[in-house]
Design a protein around this nucleic acid. Structure first.
Length: 600
DNA sequence: GCAAGGTC
């Protein structure tokens, strides 16, 4: 019997379906000489400190550097503290029984570093010695699965990938557990002051932005506006320059004449391509903007839709699909021709040439972009419907035509130079789906400008002096923070570190919502209207750690670079020694630094 | 009591 193990039930079932296996058992599916089972993400985790004899939280234990890491069943929190997750324990027993019977194991966990780790932790925890092969596919269409099975790889091909994954896991444990205890103990508070490679740079970003915002000194500047009139159609033009003093602006205002001369008119069309399909992060950002949902709420709603088989896999970091999935898109679009809001646009798209901007197999990583499955939704709650519509609507947008705008710039002379600019949508294209206003539009912009020609003289009907103030960068909200986490590391000076982080940022799509919740739970940050602001505790922690590497995105960049080297065969030992050295250093530093902390 | 990673 060959046993196939997937990362999650949905994938296990999908593969079983392709094989034509249909005998459903508890925790697996049988048929055609195969057995298909699955994990639920990570079933095992690195054991807690007490499993290595580090009891309690004690300075004497620090730094905790286990000789050999142990694995433990994933825990859940109950009123009696942390206990083994019963569902996980049961699934592990099922997997063990199947592995015992197996002649061969085929690993079908997600094609990536963590997918490899999920399987290997199970395999080693169960002390399994059976040979295994690796299925390596990045989409779960029938064709991709069949093709993958014709090209199974030897399991050992991925030994170095496992090494890099295991190093990632151990390093996060060593730095996180030790730094957390060191700061918590030295601060003298009895509360947990957690630190980690991802959460601490995130906290630092929120604090930096908050302080920047709070300490921002607005600069006043002045502009002059005029209102020319073209045959009764009045529009607005603004002085070409900004002025530092009221006097300068007043002088310009005084020089405005009864008429203004059109010096030049420039009208050029601009193509605006449709947005890409959604990945988890972009959907969380949009749901936060449109509906005020938190990242965590959106993920939960989306998970429900996924479990109801209404949308594809949610925790994806790719905004693209491959050609195999693209082949199914026309059929999907057709299912929306009677949708209340999008029916008309879906009908227009049916049979039309589809935009291929979101089609790029090379940019599909473990999973492709989020799409509706085509199953008909039934009695969704308002919130579920809202998320579903964002996904369905985005699909229609993504495959729609470009939006064509005409951007007009008029330069006028009336004493000095004035500029009027306007944008007119000529062909809505993808913008017809939601009919949203263009959020980039500035206050001074005219929706439409009258037709004028160079050399024309227009009467000036009104003029005004405008007093304005420079504005600070806004505080983070969930949408802008998620974006910042994705792009974290883009400003790192070191070319190699920046390169190592370019496709990842801080954290992963699957973990960012939970991480924001952790910062809230620790009382490091709070929600203030839609914004995320640091608390006093958060700021105190920030002040202690801000100049240490643990508060910088560069740490992740440095690790990613080394982990990639390990994946291509570099020494594991050397990296592990460096991590131990770093753990000793940061622990010692925090044991001292924490003493100066003031926590109310 | 603690990390980051994955998922029901």
């Amino acid at each position: 019997m060959k046993v196939i193990i997937a990362e999650k039930p949905s994938v296990g079932r999908e593969i079983a379906k392709v094989f034509g296996a249909s005998t459903k058992k508890d925790g697996y599916i049988e048929g055609k000489g195969y057995t298909f089972t699955w994990a639920f993400g990570h079933l095992l985790q690195l054991a807690a400190p007490q499993e290595y004899g580090y009891y309690g939280w004690n300075v004497q234990n620090l730094p905790m550097l286990p000789q050999k890491f142990k694995l433990a069943i994933r825990k859940v929190k109950t009123k009696d503290g942390m206990v083994d997750d019963p569902g996980v324990r049961k699934q592990l027993e099922i997997i063990k029984a199947l592995f015992d019977e197996a002649t061969e194991i085929i690993v079908a966990t997600d094609a990536g570093r963590e997918g490899e780790l999920i399987f290997r932790y199970i395999y080693y925890y169960l002390k399994c010695k059976k040979p295994f092969k690796r299925l390596w596919i990045s989409s779960q269409t029938d064709a991709a699965i069949k093709d993958g099975f014709r090209n199974l790889k030897p399991g050992t091909d991925y030994d170095t990938l496992f090494n890099s994954a295991h190093c990632r896991s151990q390093s996060d444990w060593l730095v996180g557990m030790n730094a957390t205890q060191a700061l918590s103990l030295s601060s003298g508070t009895r509360s947990v002051l957690s630190l980690g490679r991802v959460q601490t740079p995130t906290l630092a970003m929120i604090c930096t932005r908050y302080l920047e915002n709070k300490n921002f000194v607005p600069q006043t500047y002045y502009q002059v506006s005029i209102q020319p009139d073209k045959n009764g159609q009045v529009f607005k033009a603004i002085s070409e320059k900004n002025f530092k003093t009221r006097e300068e602006a007043q002088a310009v205002l005084d020089r405005v004449e009864a008429t203004g001369l059109i010096e030049s008119v420039e009208a050029k069309p601009r193509k605006e391509p449709p947005p890409l399909l959604h990945d988890l992060s972009s959907l969380q950002q949009e749901a936060n903007k449109r509906k005020g949902f938190t990242a965590d709420q959106t993920l939960t709603l989306l998970q429900n839709l996924y479990e109801s088989k209404l949308v594809t896999y949610p925790r994806t970091g790719s905004r693209y699909i491959g050609d195999d999935v693209f082949a199914q898109v026309p059929g999907l679009i057709e299912k929306f021709t009677s949708h209340d809001d999008f029916g008309k646009q879906a009908t227009i798209l049916t049979g039309a040439k589809l935009n291929r901007r979101s089609v790029n197999a090379k940019k599909v990583t473990d999973h492709h972009a989020i799409l509706p499955t085509g199953e008909r939704p039934y009695q969704l709650s308002a919130d579920h419907q809202a998320i579903y519509d964002m996904i369905a609507g985005r699909m229609l947008e993504a495959f729609h035509q470009d939006c064509i705008k005409e951007i007009t710039k008029i330069i006028m002379l009336s004493g000095s130079r004035f500029v009027a600019s306007g944008t007119v949508i000529q062909t809505a294209g993808w913008r017809a789906v939601f009919n949203d206003k263009d959020d980039e539009k500035k206050d001074e912009e005219n929706a439409t400008l009258p037709k004028v020609v160079q050399g024309e003289n227009l009467p000036i009907t009104d003029k005004a002096l405008l007093e304005k103030q420079t504005k600070p960068k806004p505080l983070y909200n969930e949408a802008t923070l998620l974006k910042a986490l994705e792009t974290a590391g883009k400003e790192i000076d070191d070319e190699e570190l920046r390169q190592a982080m370019k496709d990842s940022g801080l954290g992963t799509p699957a973990t960012r919502a939970a991480m924001i919740e952790t910062l809230l739970k620790r009382n490091y940050i709070a929600r203030e209207k839609k914004n995320l602001v640091p608390t006093e505790t958060g700021l105190s922690v920030y002040h202690v750690v801000k100049d240490h590497r643990i508060a910088q995105a560069e740490l992740t960049g440095a690790w990613e670079k080394r982990l990639e080297e390990i994946r291509s065969g570099a020494s594991v030992n050397q990296f592990q020694e460096e991590i131990k050295t770093y753990t000793r250093d940061i622990t010692r530093e925090l044991l001292t630094a924490g003493k100066g902390m003031v926590i109310k």
